[in-house]
Design a protein around this nucleic acid. Structure first.
Lengths: 206, 206
DNA sequence: TCACCTGTCTACCAAATGGTAGAGAGAAGG
DNA sequence: CCTTCTCTCTACCATTTGGTAGACAGGTGA
């Protein structure tokens, strides 16, 4: 770790945190500058405009998420284990940097220009996932279905379970570390049933 | 239908549309007034402040969603049919008023004050769903699990599949009516597997 | 007729916002 | 020592934003 981060990265980090938790529109450059402890103009020195800053933040976030997912796939076993590894990676990331997932949700608003920017970073990963699913279905280890729609269902479920804190509150579950682990386990069971079609042995859930 | 809606309801409707599709922060009172074709002050005559307007819109939206869900439950059969009926209701609503679901997503941002306001409207429905799930599990028609977490998974999946238009685009699926129907069918299969534990007969999917 | 209430408008305002201009400090290099 | 380049700052500015004050028109009841 660099103990003396550059001003630019400090701005990027603070922006990611603020944008991801409170939304891009809710954060002014003045507020962000005050947060970092610099003058607004210093931000505009590194990023031509607020739009430029937002784009940089989004690219940065996409890069972070992608590298974590790829790292998780590196060491993942075959078959169902890969799904498990990805879910674990998402939850780990959500725990450490909730703002990342917040930004993902922010971006997926219909019509958002940035969604494309963000999502393009994942094209290779999506392609890998698709071919993986097709292969598994062919070999009978996964129930056959449309891989695209399956990916969507799985994505929605994982992101939702990882980030829907307010809905959880409404259900009477306070979002603690413990409840996060429970949610992950329940989610894996849910996914396993939908994908593999049989009950997951609870003891085998990492 | 009232062919001559009051100014107040015209403001509410326009606000729901704008807030739901582009976000609350992105819409100024001036823009909204211009959209409705009135002066800004007229909005502030009916709603004490922008915050007041937003709250009214949220309550209105919650009421709409709730009444649709309740209506769907009225005529729904027992067991799995109830789940199906709810999913159909959500998709129907998403098709007719996408901005409603957009607002729901907007609200579920962590820390949003309005989330509570919105979600309180659904307490009775949630309670009903919970007891329903517990009863079904007891009688062996649903696989046993934590009803709260199951509700969360199901909610996330349904809302996600219904609203993640940008993610769909990234997967190469243009959001047409046809693809919406396909998504719904695939989602029901997904849910049926996870809840009931066996393959859903495709011909029986309404 | 007069007072009053409702609904809509024009005119205005203070604060905040994204952005520009340009000065100053300090290091680097000739 | 002087120039140049990098980085940060203060001082502004035009526009937008949520919100206030108050005028005006039309209807209603005493």
């Amino acid at each position: 770790m660099d103990s003396n981060p550059t001003t630019k990265t400090r701005v990027l980090d603070a922006a990611l945190l603020s944008f991801g938790t409170r939304g891009v529109d809710a954060i002014s450059l003045d507020a962000l500058a005050a947060d970092v402890g610099i003058a607004k103009q210093t931000i505009l020195y590194y990023f031509a405009s607020k739009d430029g800053l937002v784009r940089a933040v989004v690219l940065d976030a996409a890069c972070t998420v992608r590298s974590h997912l790829e790292a998780a796939l590196e060491t993942a076993p075959e078959g169902w284990g890969r799904v498990e590894a990805l879910v674990h990676a998402v939850f780990r990331l959500t725990l450490r940097q909730p703002e990342l997932m917040g930004l993902v949700r922010e971006l997926s608003r219909p019509g958002s220009m940035l969604a494309t920017t963000f999502v393009e970073q994942f094209d290779p990963l999506v392609e890998r996932a698709r071919t993986f699913l097709e292969a598994e279905m062919l070999e009978g280890r996964l129930l056959p279905c449309d891989p695209n729609l399956l990916l969507l269902s799985a994505y929605s479920t994982v992101i939702g379970v990882a980030t829907e804190v307010e809905v959880l509150r409404a259900l009477g579950i306070e979002p603690t570390m413990r409840s996060l682990v429970l949610r992950r386990r329940e989610l894996l069971r849910f996914l396993h049933l939908a994908l593999v079609g049989s009950e997951l042995d609870r003891r085998s859930v990492r």
